[in-house]
């Protein structure tokens, strides 16, 4: 379980994340217009960005001062909005560098790519590979930054089934409403760095404030 308590991050005069408290204990989607602070919140949770204020607890342990490597060793897995892979290494090596959990390239539709350098994969496939790499680390909590962006319908369906098989809490950033509704049991909306609303997918879909934000942002 991942608990974010009063997290803030200021970049110069911009407050990218503004006092966000959030508990990730199931299939949790994080939505919000571009620039809302979703990626920054994931960076704060994973230790890639230091908070200006607030705390991060992983399975009850305060990891606020721990770096990304240590949080990963404590069970925090993640992917990045721009997929982060070892480009010169083949897909099989990338998977093994992720960890020892029984995940195969087949699971994410990359069955024939064992010997293909990760750098040669098209963008959508890179996302799928990174999801597999993160799962290979046997995470206790998983953070995914727009894993479905740029995927075709088939890959989206595949990703959905892969994610549904994940038994640990997941915090998923995603723009696509249909994907969120199909996957998540909790949705949190971020707007200008602050938490705007949180609830089940259907209550969020019916929320007037949320609709206003999305219309204003033309998203």
């Amino acid at each position: 379980m991942l608990e974010l308590r009063g997290l803030s991050r200021v970049f110069g005069s911009l407050t990218a994340v503004d006092g966000v408290s959030l508990t990730v204990s199931s299939r949790h989607a994080l939505i919000g217009p571009n620039g809302a602070g979703k990626s920054t919140l994931l960076h704060l949770a994973a230790g890639n960005v230091r908070p200006s204020a607030g705390r991060v607890l992983l399975d009850g342990r305060d990891v606020t001062r721990a770096g990304p490597g240590r949080r990963a060793r404590l069970g925090l897995g993640r992917t990045f909005q721009t997929p982060a892979l070892v480009d010169s290494a083949d897909c099989g090596t990338n998977l093994r560098l992720g960890g020892r959990a029984p995940v195969s390239l087949d699971d994410v539709g990359l069955g024939g790519c064992e010997r293909l350098p990760a750098g040669a994969l098209p963008h959508g496939r890179r996302r799928l590979l990174e999801v597999a790499v993160a799962l290979a680390g046997a995470p206790r909590v998983l953070l995914l930054d727009e894993p479905a962006a740029g995927l075709g319908d088939d890959d989206r369906a595949l990703l959905l089934s892969v994610l549904r098989a994940v038994e640990v809490p997941v915090l998923l950033v995603e723009h696509d409403q249909a994907f969120v509704r199909a996957y998540a049991d909790t949705v949190t909306v971020l707007h200008q760095g602050a938490l705007l609303a949180s609830g089940t997918p259907s209550t969020i879909a019916a929320d007037a404030d949320v609709a206003a934000v999305y219309q204003g942002a033309a998203c």
């Binding site: 990045f80 892979l85 480009d87 290494a89 560098l97 960890g99 790499v133 993160a134 680390g137």
Partner: peptide, 24 residues
């Protein structure tokens, strides 16, 4: 060996290596 893969991994993508728990 795997040691070489770890070294090249640090060269190619430190962020990924850290996110997978490696001590870069």
């Amino acid at each position: 060996t795997r040691a070489g893969a770890l070294v090249r991994g640090c060269r190619d993508n430190e962020e990924r290596m850290r996110a997978s728990g490696h001590r870069v």
